[in-house]
Design a protein around this nucleic acid. Structure first.
Lengths: 168, 168
DNA sequence: GCTGAGACTGCTGAATCCGCAGATGGCATG
DNA sequence: CATGCCATCTGCGGATTCAGCAGTCTCAGC
C-alpha cells in the first residue's frame, strides 16, 4: 500500500486557526519530536510519527522554508554572561504596525509581540550592559514616532524557558 | 601542535557573569553557529571556530548537559494553530521563589522570569483556547499564595522571534 | 476518463556522527 | 623541580545518517 497519505490528508480538517500554512497532525507530531531534541535523526522521527525517513526530511525542510518553525540553539543570555535583558511594555497612539516594524528592525529586540491590555506591544530587549540598555530604551524605543509611553522590567533571573507545548 | 587549549583556557578571564558554568570564547562561537542553524554539522562548526570535529562534538554535548543551551524547534504557537497565548505580569508579596517555582511547575507556563519594576514576575502562558487561558490565569496563577495581583496581555500577533544575540 | 500537482517510498553514494585510543598542557602535590 | 592527575584536543574507523533521484499513488480539476 501507499502509507502515510491517509493521515496527512484526512487529518487537516481541524487546525484551521485562520492564517496561512495549515499544519496537519503529522507535521505537528514532527514538530513535537524536534521540540524535544532539535537534532533528532529523521529516521527516529519517522518511526515515531509513522513516516519514512525521506518523507520526514521533506516535511521538515518545508516547515523551515515556510518559516513555520526554526531549529536553533537557545540559551539564557544572562547565564552566557555580560548582558542585560529587559521586557519593555510599549503604549502606542495610532497605528501599531509602523512601531512594531521599527522595533522588529532593531537587533537588540529579540521578541516583539502585539498585545491586548494596558500595553500595545511587548518587546524583549537583550543588551551588552546597562549603558546599552539605557540607550536602546531611552533613545531608540521612546524616540519612535507614535510611542506614547514605555515601562521596563529588567530581568533578574530566568527561571524557566521551554518549547514543549506539543508534549502535554 | 596541540591547538585549541590556548584559546580555551586563556580566554575565560572575562564572562564572569557571576553564576556557574563559565563559558569561554570558543564555546560562545559554537553557540553562535548553532543559533543560526541548530542542525549545522559539527565539522562545519569546527572549521568556523578553529577546532576539530570531535572537539566541537564534545563541547556541544557538555553545553547541553550543563543546561547552558538547548537545541530545539521553536514555532509561533499562534501560527501552528488553536492556541491562546498571553504574557502575565505578577505582583508578589514576600518571597518570590515559591511563587516562581509554582509557576515553573505549570506546563502552560513556557517562560518564567523574575524582574525589577512594577511586576515581580513575568510569565508567558500558552493555552488551548480562551477557557483554558481563563482557568490558568484566574484559577491557578491568582490562587497561588503570595500572589497579590496580576495583569494579562493577550497575544494578538507575534512579530519577531529570534535567538541571534551572538551574531551582531 | 485523462492530466497535473503533491506526497510518500525505496534506493544509493556521500557526508556525518560516534566512540575510542593517544597526546598535550595546566595544575596541584610531594 | 619532578611527578601524577585531570581536562581537552586530535585523528581514525565503522556505523549511522543525510541528500538527491526516480517511481508510485491519490486527489482535484477539466
Amino acid at each position: 500500500m501507499h502509507g502515510g497519505s491517509v493521515a496527512s490528508r484526512s487529518a487537516d480538517t481541524r487546525s484551521g486557526s485562520g492564517s496561512s500554512p495549515t499544519i496537519d497532525a503529522v507535521s505537528l507530531a514532527i514538530i513535537e519530536q524536534l521540540q524535544e531534541d532539535g537534532r533528532r535523526p529523521y529516521a527516529a522521527i519517522g518511526k515515531a510519527v509513522g513516516l519514512s525517513e525521506a518523507a520526514v526530511r521533506q516535511r521538515v525542510q518545508k516547515l523551515l522554508d515556510q518559516g513555520v518553525m526554526q531549529i536553533v540553539a537557545v540559551t539564557d543570555p544572562l547565564t552566557v554572561g555580560f548582558r542585560r535583558q529587559a521586557m519593555v511594555g510599549v503604549r502606542v497612539e495610532g497605528d501599531l504596525d509602523p512601531v512594531a516594524d521599527a522595533l522588529t528592525a532593531m537587533a537588540e529586540c529579540e521578541y516583539v509581540v502585539m498585545t491586548a491590555g494596558s500595553f500595545d506591544l511587548m518587546v524583549e530587549v537583550v543588551c551588552e550592559d546597562d549603558d546599552h540598555l539605557l540607550e536602546v530604551i531611552n533613545k531608540r524605543i521612546r524616540a519612535l514616532p507614535g510611542v506614547r509611553s514605555t515601562e521596563s522590567f529588567v530581568y533578574l533571573k530566568l527561571k524557566k524557558q521551554t518549547y514543549m507545548w506539543g508534549t502535554r
